[in-house]
Every structure is written in structure tokens, then in C-alpha cells.
């Protein structure tokens, strides 16, 4: 993998740090007028998800990380692996529990997810920003309550639990924002 000099640093660049692939979140040059410049960098570790600060002497090089993002459709879970397919080439990839992580509760068959691969192996799965899921369990709401201020918890077909307005019922399909885990709207079937 290529090395990157600090003057190529920018948000999104993938580099190796502490043996782990990382993405640069923020990069700032700090330089005393007459002195050595430094890069103060915020990086997100792509496996642990931790965000840490690092500094580099400007002009130094760091090893790049062979990390790519692929958009793949979710197929099924065989109990151990989650299987995804490239809709153009029909190539399939399997991600393990560690890579899928919290995304498991937002996986809908045929939905296109982003798989992050390091050296060809999936290390993270990002679901679409919005998914549509059926409500399998929730308290019956009060008749006539259409606005509902507090809302109520509802369990979705994947096991995810979200707060929904009181008027939403079992069997209905709702749209959820996966980034915040919040209810967006009902979906007309």
C-alpha cells in the first residue's frame, strides 16, 4: 500500500495507525512562524470505532490503509455470517458479527448497504440512512389520539426498538433513520 505524506492529509483519507486502519476526520496544520510545522489530526479507528487525536511532523509519511467501500445488497443471515451481493457482478461477500455490529438491527433484504473492506475483508457494515421495517409488537394506542406527545416503544421485525407515535399499530410499516434510530413516518403499503 502506498505511503501518504502529511501534505496529502485530508478528511476521508485511510491510513494505518497502531496496527489498525483509520480514517482521517479532521486535519489541521500547526506551525510556529520560524519553526517546524506539525499536523494535528483527528482519526477514527475503523475497527474499534474510537476517535483519537494524533500529531505528525509535517513532511513525514504514514502507511496508507487498503480500505475500500463497496455498495452491496443484503441477502440473508445464516446464523453465523451475513451475506451480501454485488448487484452488478453477482459476487457475494460474507461479513461476521464483529463487522456487522449494531447494523444487524437495520438489515432489510435487498437493501443496499455500504461494506468497508480492509485488505479485502469486511470490517464494517453501514446500513442505508433510511430503512422501512414492520412493527411486530407495540401497545395498542388510544383511539382518537393522532398527535401523541410522548410516543411509545415499538419492536420491529429485526428486533430493533424505536419510539413511535401512539397512533402507530402492529403490522404497520414505518420509515426509520438508521443514523439516529428515530421514527420518521408511516409507509403506505
Amino acid at each position: 500500500m502506498a505511503n501518504y505524506s502529511t501534505n496529502e492529509f485530508k478528511a476521508g483519507l485511510k491510513i494505518m495507525q497502531d496496527g489498525e486502519p483509520c480514517a482521517i476526520v479532521e486535519n489541521e496544520m500547526v506551525k510556529p512562524g520560524k519553526g517546524q510545522a506539525f499536523n494535528r489530526v483527528k482519526i477514527r479507528k475503523l475497527i474499534s470505532g474510537k476517535v483519537v487525536e494524533k500529531t505528525f511532523k509535517s513532511g513525514d509519511s504514514v502507511e496508507g490503509a487498503d480500505v475500500i467501500d463497496l455498495d452491496l445488497a443484503y441477502l440473508y443471515n445464516d446464523g453465523e455470517f451475513w451475506h451480501f451481493m454485488n448487484n452488478d457482478t453477482f459476487e457475494q461477500l460474507a461479513a461476521d458479527e464483529k463487522a456487522v455490529g449494531d447494523a444487524t438491527k437495520w438489515l432489510v433484504e435487498q437493501d443496499v448497504c455500504t461494506l468497508t473492506l480492509w485488505n479485502g475483508n469486511p470490517i464494517a457494515v453501514t446500513p442505508p440512512n433510511f430503512v422501512e421495517l414492520e412493527i411486530t409488537e407495540t401497545d395498542p394506542g388510544l383511539k382518537g389520539d393522532t398527535a401523541g406527545t410522548g410516543g411509545k416503544p415499538a419492536t420491529l421485525s429485526t428486533g430493533a426498538v424505536v419510539r413511535v407515535p401512539l397512533f402507530v399499530q402492529i403490522g404497520e410499516v414505518i420509515k426509520v433513520d438508521t443514523r439516529s434510530g428515530e421514527y420518521v413516518s408511516r409507509v403506505q403499503k
Binding site: P32, G35, F38, R40, T55, K57, D60
Partner: peptide, 27 residues
């Protein structure tokens, strides 16, 4: 300091260390 350790521990040039200390810690 964990964010400085990677380069500072093996830096043997005094001026680079002084500049790093000034710009990243003291300023």
C-alpha cells in the same frame, strides 16, 4: 501524552522537540 508519543519519543532533534512543545502544548 498519547497524541504526541508516536513522534516525540523517538525525536532526537532538540529544535523539533522545542517547536512541538511550543506549538502543540504550550501555545
Amino acid at each position: 501524552s498519547p497524541e504526541l508519543a508516536d513522534w516525540a519519543r523517538q525525536e532526537d532533534d532538540l529544535d523539533t522537540l522545542l517547536d512541538g512543545a511550543m506549538a502543540l502544548v504550550i501555545e
